[in-house]
């Protein structure tokens, strides 16, 4: 599978441009895209950063807060809880799927199975289904008479049956497992593509050296999949932070505060509690974390390359 658009970019264009190379007209081509992008993405972002510096209920005149909203984001027990839940979900959305997919794909790295297009298509399917529909499906799966409880009763563990999404202890892991379900296919598809690109000779060489399955994993598969692992961790981490749809539709942050996450708090603090400045501070914080994760994982990979 190709991840890019084909041929590598032409080498640097350091020299003077050939005569007739169009230059200034470039601005004209970029302008329409830039105008809409600036008005409806850059401006709201800056406006949000500005609003995050005020105490504002969305109606009356706001008062200057400085970094007060950011301090509250860190110190408010409820918000700290929300970020704590995000860390738990990070495990379910990113760590768990990547680990499972990695081990599975590594285990089958020696064979080149046929029918990969079919498996790839099916494994990747959860990524393209509207989160709204996913939420509806899982709400039924976790419901009192849904398949999870049905299976438990069938194997004589009926005592464990419960409304999973309404349970203070189990709601968060239950939502997390929906994330695992959605992301595991993405990780598998990425790693399967990467494994195909590891030269078969490397495995043969490792075997000639008498490497066992475990040694082979650390010597050949792990380094060969480093790039794919970085992409998978980045994409799944961001998915874990941007899960407003799923939380809003399955639990609404409940029961109590059990599944409140930062993405949900942005909405909640704006429209339910009238803390618009605080909501903006949470939104900007999410953006900063996304930016840091993207830059950090990229650097980690490049640094060891």
């Amino acid at each position: 599978m190709r991840l890019g658009v084909g041929r590598p970019a032409p080498a640097g264009r350091a020299g003077a441009p050939p005569p007739g190379e169009p230059r200034r007209i470039g601005y004209l081509y970029v302008l329409p895209a830039l105008v809409i992008y600036a008005l409806f993405l850059l401006w709201p972002l800056l406006h949000g950063a500005w609003l995050s510096l005020f105490h504002w209920d969305g109606l009356t005149v706001g008062t200057w807060a400085g970094l007060g909203n950011y301090r509250q984001t860190i110190s408010d027990p409820q918000l700290r809880g929300a970020f704590g839940h995000a860390v738990v979900l990070l495990f379910f959305y990113a760590i768990l799927p990547c680990c499972i997919a990695f081990v599975l794909v590594a285990a089958m790295s020696r064979s080149r199975p046929r029918g990969m297009t079919f498996f790839r298509t099916v494994l990747f399917l959860p990524q393209v289904v509207a989160m709204v529909a996913v939420a509806v499906a899982w709400q039924w799966i976790y419901s009192a008479h849904g398949p999870v409880n049905g299976t438990l009763r069938l194997i004589g563990l009926g005592g464990l049956a419960r409304g999973w999404l309404g349970d203070f202890t189990w709601a968060l892991p239950s939502v997390g497992l929906i994330g695992t379900w959605a992301e595991i296919g993405l990780a598998m598809v990425l790693f399967l593509a990467g494994v195909q690109k590891i030269p078969q000779e490397l495995y043969e060489a490792a075997r000639v050296d008498g490497a066992g399955a475990v040694a082979e994993f650390f010597a050949v598969t792990l380094p060969g999949l480093r790039r794919e692992l970085a992409v998978a961790l980045t994409l799944t981490t961001i998915a874990a932070l941007r899960n407003f749809d799923l939380i809003y539709l399955t639990t609404g942050g409940g029961p109590g505060d059990a599944t409140k996450v930062p993405a949900y708090e942005v909405y909640n603090r704006t429209f339910n509690t009238g803390e618009v400045g605080l909501a903006c501070a949470i939104g900007i914080t999410i953006a900063i974390i996304v930016f840091a994760v993207t830059a950090g994982v990229g650097r980690l990979v490049e640094g060891r390359a």
Partner: peptide, 11 residues
């Protein structure tokens, strides 16, 4: 890298 969550309120 800008999540919708960061711009939806000002928007």
């Amino acid at each position: 890298m800008v999540p919708t969550e960061a711009i939806v309120v000002p928007l």
